[in-house]
Design a protein around this nucleic acid. Structure first.
Length: 470
DNA sequence: ATGTCC
């Protein structure tokens, strides 16, 4: 794939073949994937989607994914036949991050670390197929899908303020639980309040560095503060919805007269029965994912309260796998777009009307989970940028899970983590090896490049004190 | 990511 270096942090793929727009990769030379890596071909493939506008974008943490690269952003013009593609959201619909700040300092944590991590380990269901903190009835699940974290608060989980400190106020408005298949409902019923596996985690962290004191203050963060970060998604329910709708769209492509370079980019016009069905089910999965993180956060707060007498306050909750109908200016005109973000995070600029009053002037908090044993970051949205207010989502893999398992000794890795002062509560040896830091890019470099590319501003760097691994 | 193949 031919890349043109436009600036030190921006590379371009000229339109060729079926591409309707250019590809734009935000990266440094060091973070770019290898030339023969499939993810750059995927950026070009996405540029061929019907109705795409602007460019097919990739963030500095990009790597190979299903159809779209992970770290991909693509917007289609709804009124010009623009499509929605489940592969542009991914299998873990509305996977995201929740950050809570403890009324506790790093210097006070050491003596209670084992006690707190044991409590969090007990309170946090995790591993493939496992659940759940909150056992719902089928009617309860349907309300959760429609109302997200609002329903959790109504049923006594957490407080009203939690909703204000969430993207979309704790729930997306256009969920249609009726579009969710019986199989997806079955899979989701017993998993509300569970981490899952893979790169999902619950970590106790400390604020290690502040890059912007004003924004950190607005987000309620100060140096040395203990935090809890939760990274998880919509579990089996979201996975099943993606599976269902990829199949349905694969079958309806010809009826819509659509063709794409890769079958994994199966899609349908946003304004079609198949498109609307996917978006309604996807939104229901988004509400499930937010409520999942919400109840895990409440459970973590109870553990901390019991072990230390101190509480947890929500900083923010934000997703990095979602498609949204948004209004943006393209070519001097306001247009209704379907913005796909897959392994990319919305980053609204200061003053944006969707931000709650307490955060309006600061810009949207963006939460970046690092790989296991490495730093995580808090960023903020900025004015300008040209990827529809989006930035990166994490470290980004350099090795496949298979490669990592082959080359990494889980027992040695655990010893190294514990030696560096991180308390580890794992789920499986294989899971630990898959998530070794050496299988990931350097998250500090990723966020520095995202800032350098004008996509966001760095606010704070957090380091892990203990990890409950999915 | 995922009851890692209904």
């Amino acid at each position: 794939m031919e890349l043109v270096e436009e600036t030190p942090f921006r590379f371009r793929i000229e339109p060729h073949g079926a591409m309707r727009v250019p590809g734009v990769v935000f990266a440094s030379r060091r973070l770019l994937p290898p030339k023969d890596d499939g993810s750059l071909v995927q950026v070009a493939n996405v540029a061929a989607l019907p109705g795409i506008v602007g460019a097919s974008y990739a963030m500095p943490d990009m790597h190979w994914g299903y159809g779209f690269p992970i770290g991909g952003v693509a917007a289609t013009d709804v009124r010009a036949g623009g499509v929605v593609s489940p592969g542009g959201v991914g299998f873990d619909i509305s996977c995201g991050v929740r950050l809570l700040a403890a009324d506790l300092e790093r210097s006070d944590f050491h003596r209670v670390a084992e006690k707190v991590l044991n409590g969090l380990s007990r309170a946090t269901p995790r591993g493939a197929g496992r659940g759940a903190v909150w056992q719902l009835s089928r009617d309860g699940l349907e309300r959760l899908l429609a109302e997200g974290s609002h329903y959790a608060v109504e049923r006594g989980w957490g407080v009203q303020r939690d909703l204000e400190r969430c993207e979309d106020g704790g729930a997306v408005a256009d969920a249609e639980p009726g579009r969710v298949s019986a199989r997806a409902l079955d899979r989701g019923l017993g998993q509300v309040g569970s981490l899952g596996s893979g790169n999902h985690f619950l970590e106790v962290q400390a604020v290690d560095e502040i890059y912007d004191e004003v924004l950190a203050g607005a987000f309620g963060l100060h140096p040395g503060q203990v935090c809890v970060m939760i990274h998880c998604g919509s579990r089996g329910l979201g996975h099943q919805i993606c599976t269902d709708h990829v199949r349905r769209m694969d079958e309806s492509m010809a009826d819509h007269g659509l063709s794409v370079p890769d079958r994994q980019l199966a899609c349908a016009p946003v304004d079609s029965a198949a498109g609307r069905a996917y978006l309604g089910a996807m939104a229901a999965a988004a509400n499930y994912a937010r409520a999942n993180r919400h109840v895990l956060g409440v459970a973590a707060g109870e553990v901390l309260r019991e072990a230390t007498g101190r509480g947890l306050d929500l900083v923010y909750d934000i997703s990095h796998n979602l498609a949204k109908i948004e209004t943006h200016e393209v070519g001097g005109q306001r247009r209704t777009l379907c913005v796909h973000r897959k392994g990319a995070t919305r980053a609204l600029p200061p003053g944006h009307p969707e931000l709650p009053p307490g955060l309006r002037e600061a810009g949207q908090p963006v939460l970046i989970p690092g790989s296991m044993g490495t730093a995580s970051h808090v960023l903020a949205g900025v004015a300008g940028g040209d990827a529809f207010h989006s930035t990166c989502h994490g470290a980004g893999r350099t090795q496949s899970r298979h490669q990592a398992v082959r080359t990494i000794d889980a027992r040695q890795l655990r010893r190294e983590l514990e030696h560096s002062g991180i308390v580890v509560r794992g789920s499986s040896a294989r899971g630990l090896a898959e998530e070794a830091p050496t299988a990931y890019k350097d998250v500090d470099a990723v966020v520095a490049v995202a800032e350098g590319a004008g996509l966001c501003r760095r606010v704070a760097r957090l380091v892990p004190l203990g990890v409950v691994k999915g």
